[in-house]
Amino acid sequence: MELLVAGVIGILTTVGIYLVLRAHTFPVILGLTFLSYAVNVFLFAMGRLVIDRPPVISPDAPAYTDPLPQALVLTAIVISFGMTALIVVLALRGYLETGSDRTTLDAARRTEDGDGA
């Protein structure tokens, strides 16, 4: 199971990094999503992989899983979910206002200079 989890984290990260380095907004957003999935699974595994154990104290539990990484993952999921929504809106507005979905600043700069002159 360790190999499976580690492999999944590795593949998600690889895909994420590749997509983030693209020059258009949509692949970058997808890449950020992949990276946040990877980090969620990673954080989860940081409490050690344990099967069928409760995270909270109960009298008949033989052992426990670490509850803290689960709480951290929950926080991370909420934040990355909200941020993804924001950046999608941002990319759409940028596309509608400049007519290009490239992530470089040149197009916008040129428009601004054109307006100013």
């Binding site: 983030v20 990276l35 980090v39 990355s80 941020m83 950046i87 941002l90 700069r109 601004e112």
Partner: peptide, 24 residues
């Protein structure tokens, strides 16, 4: 404004990446 939106996308993207690295 268009220039601010473009710069804003970069700003948000780089900080999201930084947050991911922070969590790792």
């Amino acid at each position: 404004g268009p220039a601010r939106l473009k710069a804003g996308f970069q700003y948000v993207a780089i900080n999201l990446l930084a947050s991911v690295v922070f969590l790792v």
